[in-house]
Design a protein around this nucleic acid. Structure first.
Lengths: 209, 209
DNA sequence: GTGACAATTATTCAAGCGTATAATTCAAAA
DNA sequence: TTTTGAATTATACGCTTGAATAATTGTCAC
C-alpha cells in the first residue's frame, strides 16, 4: 500500500486550495453532500490536514462563503472601473449579468449559503457584511449619477432607487443564471440597462456602455 | 421501556404530515441537517414508517419541494382573484411582498431547493414546472393589462416585460425576506407597485390596489 | 369470533461522518 | 551530523446516517 507522497505547501496556499475545493464541493454536491473527505480529495491533501488550517468544518464553510462574497464584489468593482457615473452604472449592470457572475455553479453556491443564513449566526454575519457593501456600491453609483445629472440628491430617494435597481439586477441574475435557455431571445445586459434607466427616470438608452 | 402507542392514519394524512415536517426541518436545519429521524419526530411517527410512503429520503424532499412550489403559487393565485387587469397585477405584487410569502423560513426553504436544482435532475424538473407556471401568470397579467389599455399586444414585448417585472418582484422578495430591517422606512408593496408601473410605462399610481 | 393482512413500531446493519490521535517525513537549527 | 519540531499522512474512534428487517398491533372480511 503506497503511501501518499509527502508534500509541503505554505499556509496561504493550503488555505486557498482548501477554500477553493470547498466551493467546488458545495457547488457540485450541495452543502449536504460536502464532506471533509471530499474537500480533502479535491484539494489534493489528506482529510486530517484540514483541521490544522480550519478548526472545524463549519469554519471552513464560513471562510468559503466569505471568499465567494469577496470575489463577487471584487469582480464587479473591477468591471465598474472609473469614469462618468452613467457609464459606471452601465458597466455595473453588465458585470452582474455576464460571466463569471452568471454561472449555474455560482448560483448554486449563493443559494446554498443563503439557505444557511437563517440557521447559522456566523453565516448571517458574513452575509450582512457582504450585502451591505454590495448595496452601498449601488447607492454610491446612483448618488453620483444624480449629481451628474445636476439634480439635488435626496437621500431617501437614492435609498429607494438603489433598492429597486438592486432588486431588478438580483432578480435578473437569478433567473438568467438558473435557466439561461429562457432568455436566448433577449440581450439581457442591454435589457437590464434599459430597465434600470426606466426605474431611475432616465431615457431608455442613457445607461449603455 | 414503554412502546409508542400504535396509531393509524389515512395515507393522505400521513403523506401531508410527512411533507409538512420535512419543510419545517429544512427551514430550521437546512438540507444538510434534515434527517429521516428528525422528520419522523416532527411528524409524530417512527422513522421506519417514512419508507412506506416515500421510497427514499430523496423522494420525500422532492415531494416537499413540489408542495412548497404549489403552495406559493396557490397563495398568489388566491390573492389575485378576479377583476381589472391593473387591479389583479397590483394584488399580485402585494401577495408576493407580504406574508405568508415574505418569511425568513420560506426564503430559507426556497434557497435550499434552488441550490439543489443544479445537483439533482429531479429537483430541476420540479423547479422548471413551478417556475414556468409562475412566470406564465405574470405574462397573462401583463397581456390582459395591455389589452385593457387598448394597446396591441406584441408577444415579444409582453415576454420581456414579464421578465422584468418578475425579476423586480423576485429581487425585492428575496431582499425583503432576508433582511426586513433594512426596509423599515419603506412601504415595500406600494414601492414595488410604483416600480412595476415604471417598468411597464404606466403612471406610477396606476398599479395600486 | 378469528385468522389473515396491512400498518406501525422497534431493532439492526453497514456505511459514512467529523474528529482525534498516532505514525511518518522532511527541513532547518544546533 | 544529529536532533528537533512542525507539517503531513495514516489510522482509529464514536456517532449518526439512510435503509432493511423483525416484531407487534389493530382492522376487517369471513
Amino acid at each position: 500500500m503506497a503511501r501518499r507522497p509527502y508534500h509541503r505547501e505554505p499556509e496561504a496556499v493550503r488555505q486557498h486550495d482548501l477554500i477553493e475545493a470547498t466551493l467546488e464541493c458545495i457547488a457540485e454536491f450541495g452543502l449536504a453532500g460536502t464532506t471533509v473527505r471530499e474537500v480533502a480529495l479535491k484539494a489534493g491533501i489528506t482529510p486530517g490536514l484540514i483541521r490544522r488550517y480550519f478548526h472545524t468544518k463549519e469554519r471552513l464553510v464560513e471562510a468559503a462563503y466569505a471568499k465567494l462574497s469577496a470575489d463577487m464584489t471584487a469582480t464587479i468593482n473591477e468591471a465598474v472601473g472609473e469614469g462618468a457615473a452613467a457609464l459606471r452604472l452601465a458597466r455595473f449592470i453588465r458585470a452582474n449579468l455576464t460571466a463569471p457572475l452568471v454561472d449555474s455553479k455560482t448560483l448554486s453556491l449563493w443559494a446554498a449559503f443563503i439557505s444557511a443564513v437563517n440557521t447559522d449566526a456566523a453565516m448571517a454575519a458574513i452575509h450582512r457584511d457582504g450585502y451591505r457593501g454590495f448595496r452601498k456600491n449601488v447607492e454610491t453609483l446612483i448618488y453620483d449619477l444624480t449629481v451628474e445629472r445636476g439634480l439635488t440628491p435626496i437621500s431617501s430617494l437614492i435609498h429607494s432607487q438603489s433598492i429597486a435597481v438592486n432588486a431588478l439586477i438580483d432578480g435578473l441574475w437569478i433567473e438568467f443564471s438558473i435557466s439561461p435557455e429562457e432568455f436566448n431571445s433577449i440581450d439581457v445586459v442591454a435589457f437590464a440597462q434599459e430597465c434600470g434607466a426606466r426605474l431611475l427616470g432616465l431615457d431608455p438608452n442613457q445607461l449603455k456602455d
